[in-house]
Nucleic acid binder design. Structure first.
Lengths: 145, 145
DNA sequence: ACCAGTTGCTTGCGGTAGCAACGATTGTAG
DNA sequence: CTACAATCGTTGCTACCGCAAGCAACTGGT
């Protein structure tokens, strides 16, 4: 329970610190994640619904988040040829250049604020612990016994 | 970095799962924390500003959160006799009964979703890891080198 | 006693998120 | 082929939170 209190008091400030480092690029954590996922996708584009799932965002939430990125010229919407219901979120050249600039800095930020502070054993424990929690949450959702 | 991705994908759903369990009492995670802190305080009351700091909330954020709890009859505002600028957030009888009912359930929820899934070594690693991160964030804030 | 600076809480505003509802499109069963 | 269900994205609504501004009250120096 002590560990739990520590968790509560750490998660928020940690996210805030990372977001502060990202601000120099005009990005929020959420924006960064959109660009990161798109940059790793085939043709640097994804269906809105798939992207929403990856980002753990509701459809409406993603619509509005993308609005911001589109007006910033980092992403554009393109209708899918295969399914006219579908909108593809497509990374623009500007978006690609920005994420390529910001990514190393962000990775470094994660290292400074988290990874480099911990022993390899602690990192491994964190990884396996979160894997277990995530697996448990998935099971619970699929089988609401 | 893999551990980092796992962290990102776990923290949000975990908070959501706990919030879902708390919903049966009509409480959010934030509401619960207010009541929990107040129930542990002397005379079950705290100064707004101290409470805001504990909750990592801005003053305005706490004002609105308390609005909700006050209209729900769980907390009331009382002017401080020592300093007339200060408002005390005071747990009501209803608030005390609710937190006393909800707390065991919430603790159990944390166990089910987190603690019971992990080995003692993993729990210890989580605790020390977050302690280090939190200490580092504090240092950084006090000495923005 | 007075005035400047600080502290504490509230309010207006903007940004972000989820849910419910909707229109458009696709898939499927009869 | 036609009806019906499911999927996809957007929009209206509501709620939450932080920042900046404002007002009240306290503090310390003159």
């Amino acid at each position: 329970m002590q560990a739990w209190r520590g968790y509560i008091d750490t998660v928020g400030p940690l996210a805030a610190a990372l977001e502060a480092d990202l601000a120099q690029f005009g990005l929020t954590n959420g924006d960064y994640e959109v660009l990161a996922w798109l940059s790793e996708a085939d043709d640097e584009q994804m269906r809105m619904c798939d992207l929403a799932e990856r980002l753990r965002l509701s459809p409406s939430g993603l619509t509005r988040r993308l609005d911001g990125l589109v007006s910033g010229g980092l992403v554009e919407r393109a209708p899918s040829v295969a399914d006219r219901r579908v909108m593809m979120a497509q990374l623009t050249r500007r978006g690609r250049r920005l994420i390529e600039t910001a990514a190393p800095d962000h990775v470094d930020s994660v290292r400074r604020h988290l990874i480099d502070l911990l022993t390899p054993a602690e990192i491994a424990a964190l990884g396996s612990a979160f894997d277990k929690v995530r697996a448990h949450l998935r099971d619970e959702q699929n089988d609401p016994s």
